[in-house]
Design a protein around this nucleic acid. Structure first.
Lengths: 235, 235
DNA sequence: ATCTTATAAATTGCGCGCAATTCCAGAGGA
DNA sequence: TCCTCTGGAATTGCGCGCAATTTATAAGAT
């Protein structure tokens, strides 16, 4: 009876669902680094027990998205400059390989998916919905990982993209030029032509630009209400 | 046999210590895939509470080293052929990048560490302590990740090496030639000469050989549990 | 003997609630 | 106004122990 797998009812969500919802909130920058994640509040939001929420928070902390401080609770990870650079550096290392694999083995359907993603991102950007555009921009990189057909790389990229989001919201340049708009499209062109080497170096530059656009002078921001972020059934 | 650096002998080990000890046991192949990890037994061994052990098992499962089956407990992950290939494939992708970085940026002290590792492995192998040799062989790859100076890549490689150990103990060819002995030494030579490209392709071949040495025909199963083979009792 | 069925033991999942710690507001003092 | 102290509220850490489920064991049937 309590089985309702695909339903949109507000039945208690599974552990994985909660994890993904929180990750989504992180990549959408609806929760900023340093935000305290009150356990009971989250339990109330997702209608689960403390124990279950604890597991989710543990998983988030294992993946570097949340920092657990003894007796103080869970906080959205706010990386220092070193860690931020390590995240970007890891992406350069991993994504070069991913791009190479995609350039060598991608099919027409894969290109179509990438194309659609780029279209959606442009659409959002032109409509001024920048946050949505950023989200699609991140999904582009996850798409590349998916196209390799390797679920391990896929999970890894989801993690790295999420951490990148946190880093960006911490250190992004307020006068953000975000000038690397066309990179995804250019990359897709190279992939279509199976030009692995140019695609790889473009990805490298792409991430270099992202890193260069950051200014490692932290700014403070803490005000966040969890209940307004996760819009669920009220009262 | 210092299990813990400068610590009280039998003081309750921390979460991370337990995690690493179990991972060590996995890479040493002292625990085989499919083995059931009895929670209370582990609590007794490590002198910790069930709750703490639960966290360790959760972390192991998040990292793909252990499978948690509801109401049945924790089992050392036994990958199927697909997952095994995904692990090796992920390693090819990641380690190519790592090797490139090392070739470009490694110093003399780094080369010394690699050299010592190779020496230790050879020593063990010639002394017939093959298990120890295998362990050092895995550590070589982790060393490479450490030399990049990127802790994220380092953790990732620890995880991938551990999963590889599980895969190897599942699918290794009984007539194991393990013929790729000299690869590490040759790789080091390339790294010393800053020859990134040859080093990368050698690493690729190295992992290809490892994969080819595996036999994915369901042999005498180490899976202690028949139910995981014949999918009965689901739902 | 082998396969079922029944019963007991073992094990896991998890809510409850307390102790320890931290957070916070408000009083008092400089 | 700005610290410092302080007592109570809020929050986290975690042991305890029961209920649900599975596993092991023994008895019975064919």
């Amino acid at each position: 009876m309590p089985r309702r797998p695909a339903g949109k009812t507000d039945s208690p969500p599974s552990q994985g669902d909660i994890y993904e919802q929180i990750v989504d909130a992180l990549v959408d920058q609806r929760i900023l680094p340093g935000t305290r994640l009150n356990e009971l509040a989250l339990c109330g939001v997702f209608k689960v027990s403390r124990r279950e929420m604890e597991k989710v928070l543990l998983r988030l902390s294992f993946n570097g998205l949340v920092t657990l401080i003894p007796n103080r609770g869970a906080f959205v990870a706010s990386s220092d400059a070193n860690e931020a650079r390590a995240i970007l550096s890891a992406r350069k290392t991993v994504e070069a390989g991913i791009v190479e694999a995609v350039a060598l083995r991608a099919s027409g359907a894969d290109f179509k998916r990438l194309e659609q993603n780029i279209a959606r991102e442009d659409e959002c950007r032109h409509a001024g919905r920048i946050r949505e555009a950023i989200k699609h921009s991140g999904e582009f990189h996850i798409l590349l990982a998916e196209i390799t057909g390797n679920p391990i790389l896929c999970d890894l990229m989801k993690q790295l993209v999420a951490r990148t989001s946190l880093v960006v919201s911490l250190y992004e340049n307020p006068n953000g030029l975000s000038c690397w708009h066309g990179d995804h499209a250019t990359l897709l062109k190279h992939l279509r032509a199976h030009k692995a080497r140019p695609a790889m170096s473009l990805m490298q530059r792409h991430l270099d630009h992202l890193e260069e656009s950051l200014v490692f002078t932290p700014q403070a921001d803490t005000s966040t209400d969890l209940r307004t972020i996760f819009r669920r059934g009220e009262r």
